[in-house]
Design a protein around this nucleic acid. Structure first.
Lengths: 327, 327
DNA sequence: TTATCAAAAGTAATCGATTACATTTTTTTG
DNA sequence: CAAAAAAATGTAATCGATTACTTTTGATAA
């Protein structure tokens, strides 16, 4: 790669002039402009992001932290982020953290080092204090997962209410024995969806039986399947199950197929997220639709506002129950 | 963030000494070492990646270019890459390109600018010449998708042979009318799998009917479903379909459910990739297993060897037919 | 005590850009 | 046409690190 000095030499001007041609072309005489642009073309020059951002503290890069790329839930959020970011001249870099705080630190350092201009985090909040501290100095927006604090910005949905509505829907259908397939409670959504589940049951005087609740360790089909297997093995088994994620629900559905149970007649199933696959499995899964694209798009816009130094307000977006054929 | 100068001042030494404490601690006197380390701790100092890589041309970052994060196929490859990269002190950044050459250029520039040390590309090769040129200057490894050239490195499978075997399997089961759901031919795997399909049919004197071949525009469930819809609408419809990707196959399977066709009795279906979901749908999908984790892991190791300046040799890994219940 | 030499620390150039300020060139104006 | 003002360009400091080279310190030996 040619450097700015080489271009300057080739064009017979100073580096400052070359820099001006790139950043403020109207400040240089047409004749010079042409000469320099020609040199740039000839030498195939591209400004070094490294040199530039060392000086300007601007990289044009946004970091997106996510626990795992394998969950299709994130794919659509990323689309939303990407569209808005690109439209504003930013590029995004996806950082898979496996929800490991050590790995997260590496990416946090990228923003401290000005390698990135802002962060959208979908990671669970392990250490609220350090997140607040970081957020005071650098533009950070939480998406989907969040820690509530008036200095922290987030875009999310009301998980508790959504879960409450889902379980209430099952109750209205006549179910009295409702199981729960949940995920690691370090994720806020997991504990909130639990609360919603609990609230609905209590409201209708149904008991919350520990045996009907299974917390998975991983978020994949396999875990959902295993959870359903455990639930089915009870002597007094539930007649309906609410899974806090479609991925788990789809796994659970597979176990129902294996056991040749009719869905929803012998076992009803309610998922969460409305990922693409929920409508492809058979029978199509009843679920809670999160506005994933908007979650991403709004996070991105919020982040870019923050980068500009504007004040932003956290948002709780609407969800929607999608009643299909598993209930 | 504190800078190296601040640490130097605080510790009462020169910046060079601070740098030595970080990079070659055995070259500084114990007493000084302690003093500086203390200053580093007190000021919470972390070296700036920006300043450092401007000087050393080393960032510790690997770029992974992929067309789209929503295809679960990539998720497992990424796991393989990530494990090996982390083990060697590298971090990876995922770059979604939407197979758009303009977007790709942005990420290629990151390596030219020394923001990254190497690239693993899973993008289709749009411009072979410029890829070769880039690859001569910078460490680049192609994974899964590739352009064949002795200066370019790749890790992949033999798509043509795999497709050939899959279709042959269908033929052995007695199928004479075999359809193909393919993807955009700009992807090498799409055209190779087509060749394999063609070869198998010709070998058994079966005709290749254009009406039985559908090329989808996108790689998602919806497209697979639509493809199957078109195939089913023929007066003389195929009795078996080979889809070049599980994502398409799963979409196709949904259409079969809608039309209440028995699988595999009334329509057999063969997928490709063995992504997690292929074993979760009902009935479980017969497919070709790619060694995705290994594809990623080997690509990463190959890339890191290249970065060290070592010679590497391209690899073609083994695939495997996974016969489940849709054939 | 002093010469010799290794170890430790410092000085300053460098990577590739941007930009405040200084200087030169061009245009405007009385 | 000279002076003033505006426009164009150049000079050099700067961002935050590394490192070749130089200088200082201190240990060892004669």
């Amino acid at each position: 790669m040619a450097t700015i000095q080489e271009v300057a030499k080739y064009a017979g001007v100073s580096v400052a002039t070359v820099s001006r041609v790139i950043n403020t072309p109207d400040k240089v005489k047409k004749q010079t402009l042409f000469k320099v642009q020609n040199a740039i073309r000839e030498l195939n020059y591209e400004p070094s992001v490294l040199g530039r951002s060392l000086r300007t503290s601007r990289s044009g890069l946004l970091l997106v932290l996510l626990p795992s790329v394998s969950n299709p839930f994130y794919a659509q959020i990323i689309n939303g982020i990407q569209d808005k970011a690109i439209a504003s001249g930013y590029n995004i870099l996806l950082c898979e953290t496996d929800s490991d705080p050590d790995r997260e630190v590496i990416f946090f350092n990228m923003i401290k080092n000005k390698l990135a201009d802002g962060i959208i985090s979908m990671d669970p909040t392990v250490n609220k204090e350090s997140l607040i501290e970081l957020s005071n100095k650098y533009p950070i927006v939480q998406c989907s997962e969040y820690a509530k604090d008036n200095t922290l910005s987030y875009v999310t949905i009301d998980s508790k209410r959504a879960a409450y509505q889902a379980v209430k829907h099952l109750i209205k259908l006549g179910h009295k024995k409702i199981g729960l397939i949940n995920f690691d409670k370090k994720f806020l959504y997991a504990s909130e969806r639990y609360s919603g589940y609990e609230k609905a049951l209590k409201e209708f005087d149904l008991k919350v039986k520990d045996e009907w609740i299974y917390n998975t360790k991983y978020l994949n089909f396999e875990s959902g399947q295993q959870a359903m297997r455990v639930l089915l093995n009870q002597t007094d088994r539930p007649t309906a199950v609410f899974a806090v994620s479609d991925v788990l629900a789809v796994g659970a559905l597979k176990e129902l197929h294996i056991n040749q149970l009719k869905v929803p007649e012998e076992m009803a199933l309610f998922g969460f997220d409305n990922i693409e696959i929920s409508n492809v499995v058979y029978p199509p899964l009843t679920t809670v639709a999160q506005p994933m694209y908007d979650l991403g798009a709004i996070s991105a816009q919020m982040l870019m506002s923050k980068i500009k130094g504007e004040e932003v307000e956290s948002r709780v977006l609407d969800h929607q129950l999608i009643i299909r054929e598993t209930t």
